[in-house]
Every structure is written in C-alpha cells, then in structure tokens.
Write a protein that binds this DNA or RNA. Structure first.
Length: 287
DNA sequence: AATGAAACCTGACAGC
DNA sequence: TGCTGTCAGGTTTCAT
C-alpha cells in the first residue's frame, strides 16, 4: 500500500500527536507481525516515551526513550527505535480509546488522554520491530543496506548511480537498495513524466535523460505528499483520512485508457515482475 | 549482477 | 447464489 508519500503523510500526522507521550499498555493479538519476540517487544514499549517520529524510505521510525531500569537509574537515559513497515495494507491510526477495534487490528498501544494507537493490516505483510536500547541506537543492518532518499540525493549522484547499473529502469526504481521509498505507483508515474520506457536499460541512458528522471521522481513525490498520498483502497493517514493524489495519476491504473498527453492507448504489462502502465508513444524504448 | 518465480495474506471483482 | 481465477500500494528468499 504505502509508498514514500503515504508514509510521509502518516509520519507527519504521528509527529503532531505522539512525541512526549508515554505508552501505557501494549496488546499484540497477532504476533506474526513482529520481527522482535513478542515478550521483549511488549516489555520494552510499555512505559516508554515517544521522543521523535521520522521516516526512512517506506519505514516509520520512532525514537523511544526506554523506561529506566533500577540498575541503570543513574546512567544517561537509553533509547531505542520502534520501526514499522506497513507492507501493502498496514494502517497506523490514533483513535479514541472508546472506539471498538476494527477487524484486522493486530496491535493496540494505549496512550494517555483516552487515546490509543492501533495497527491494522488486512493482508498482514507489514512488520514491526524494536532495536536494542542504547545511548546511541542504530537501525537494523537490513535497513542500512537501503539506498539514499529520493528527495535528498543530488542530481549528479543520481545520474551516476543510475548509469552504473544494467537493470531496467522500472526494476531499479523499485529496488530499495538503489533508492529508498519509491514503489509501483510512483515508479510508473515518474517514468511517464520523464518520457522514459519502463524496460529501458539504465546503463544506456544519456546523462540528460537520467537527469529528467531525477526531476520527475522528485516532482511526483513532492506533489503526492502535497496531496496527502494516493488512496487506492486501504491507505489512510494517522487520523484515518484518505489521500487524493490518485486523482492525479496519469498512467498508474489507467492501462487501456487514452494517454492524457497524446491520446494513444496506454499499455499495460508485467515489467520487473510488477504490473506496469505506460504510454507507447510518449515513452519510447529506442532513443 | 540481474531476473523470475514463489511465498507470505485477505478481499474485491469478473466470469461462468 | 456460489464457485474459480486474477489482481492488488511490498519484501524476502531461492534458483538460474
């Protein structure tokens, strides 16, 4: 479900309500969503305080201040990361505690002021974990292998990175080790805006065309964030509101329909293992 | 290094 | 009505 713009929208919502608050009670009813053993997960989070909410690619990263153990009562406070990946259908929503749990609610975090944070995930592809408490907590090794943030990488670095790879553009944009945060919707939308074919080989791209892709990716992601993300079926922000960038999709979900630019019939096929839509006239393979 | 397929899940929808 | 097959915003793992 959620790609960078959706996760960013959720993070902004959580950032407005969570920092400074303490988790009073944790209930996990579906432990398979956890990467950390359930007992350790619950023990670490109960009583811990949210210090900071941020995004790392498609991950929500919350820096938590650990409960002071009696032994470490005089040391400096320890913190750890609480990391959430929403998979395809995950939702993290702050609701009044009195509100009954919706179906597929797999974890419940009771806050103060009669509010609770719920984790809902129909398909259960999402995962949560916590890291070791430390004065200077570190992200899991798996995440350290991710590529740069698409909105932070410079045009020059993007062009070099792109042209050093042989894969198809679509496969690269989806590869989190190349760039972190782009998924199927924004890969297709970016390629359309750059006028590049999804199956074009990265190594054969001219610097100018690679630069166009850099601009297109930024533009699409920034516009999507400004529109609160794309809601296809499940995505909602931290207060349960849908986004509206799906109204601005130019190719995603429009296979068979006319191109908004030239009127040609948009194509749809599997590229890099994922459903892909593009305009055969605006996005040519041979340049 | 790159690609493809399969696995992990539920729900919506099309077709019969 | 109900069955079957296909598809869906993602990632990981394994074989080639």
């Amino acid at each position: 479900m959620p790609e960078l713009p959706e996760v960013e929208t959720i993070v902004r919502g959580l950032r407005a309500r969570l920092p400074g608050r303490r988790i009073q009670e944790v209930a996990v009813t579906q432990p398979s969503i956890l990467r950390t053993p359930a007992a350790r997960f619950v023990r670490a989070l109960e009583g811990a305080e949210v210090r900071e909410v941020s995004r790392f690619g498609k991950h929500i990263v919350m820096r938590m201040q650990a409960v002071r153990s009696r032994r470490a009562a005089r040391g400096s406070p320890l913190s750890f990361f609480w990391i959430v990946h929403l998979g395809m259908t995950g939702q993290l929503i702050v609701s009044p505690s009195a509100q009954p749990a919706l179906p597929h609610t797999h974890a419940w975090f009771e806050l103060d002021r009669e509010e609770s944070l719920r984790y809902i995930d129909i398909r259960r592809f999402g995962r949560m974990e916590i890291t070791e408490p430390s004065a200077q907590p570190v992200l899991p090794a798996r995440m350290e292998r991710h590529g740069p943030e698409p909105l932070e990488i410079s045009e020059q670095e993007f062009i070099e990175r792109l042209r050093s790879r042989k894969a198809r553009l679509k496969a690269l944009l989806l590869d989190q080790r190349f760039l972190r945060g782009v998924g199927n919707i924004y890969a297709d939308e970016s390629l359309f805006r750059a006028g590049l074919h999804p199956a074009a080989l990265a190594s054969r791209l001219s610097p100018a065309r690679a630069g166009r892709l850099w601009h297109a990716v930024r533009e699409v992601l920034q516009e999507a964030i400004a529109h609160g993300g794309s809601s296809i079926s499940d995505y909602v922000d931290a207060s349960g509101q849908a986004g509206w960038f799906q109204e601005s999709h130019r190719v995603y979900g429009r296979g068979g329909e006319p191109c908004l630019c030239c009127g040609a019939r948009l194509r749809r096929a599997i590229v890099a293992g994922r459903g892909t839509a593009w305009c055969p006239r605006c996005q040519r393979l041979n340049h």
